[in-house]
Amino acid sequence: MKTTGAIDTAKRQLVYEVISGGTGLILALFMWGHMMFVGSILIGTFGFDWLALQLEIYFIAQPTVVVIFSLFLVHAALAARKIPAQLEERRKMIRLGRDLKSQAHEESLLWIWQVRTGMIVLVLGSFHLVLLGIDVLTPLFGERVGIESVTSLARVQAGLWLPYAVLLICVEFHASIGLYRLAVKWGVFSSLGRKTLRRIESFILWLFLGLGAVILLVLAGVIPPPLAFLATGGAA
């Protein structure tokens, strides 16, 4: 019964599964960090620029862009294996998900939405990453190599706020439900029970959506940095 071939396949499958889940987890955690980083704008451009500079001086930003972009693509490629190839199959899943949703079961339909948002994230996220890659690694944007508040503000206000808003919603939804699913699938925090996990999931979702929205509004110049008072003595 035991065949080396089968064992190898099993090992490979395990590795794929761990990588797709693991990259998802890392990406989700990165997004929390990302939120903190971009959130420095809430203090004002001073905070933002100072942080950006630190990250570049210590060579954190440059490799991060490359690593995150790779993880992003690996995750997308591996996760996409689970998406049924045929239209008819996808339709079947959607129909089932809708019927079950009407019977007080949500997670099936949420998976469909996870795929849909994942697709959007793939497109918009790739664009964003390429953009930031250029920003971080080349002198093409702004006055120096790297991220500066001037360029960021200008970009967002020039119209990027719209794709960013879409990206924000999609990525937060996708990541929070992804983390919830990950916890259930591997039985982490299972002692809390699924209901509680679901509640934590939506708390995280709304928290980051809210935070992201405020950040985006600041970047778009609609509201002033709400935490500017923290930067006493700064040049803001």
């Binding site: 064992i7 499958q13 007080a104 099936s108 699938k185």
Partner: peptide
């Protein structure tokens, strides 16, 4: 363990499950 590993660890086994959770609720 090796016997089980072979059976469980693949897309026809537990990694086929994508966590839709309907089974559990139903």
């Amino acid at each position: 363990d090796a016997d089980w590993f072979e059976l469980i660890s693949n897309e026809h086994g537990v990694f086929g499950c994508i966590g839709m959770m309907a089974c559990h609720d139903i």
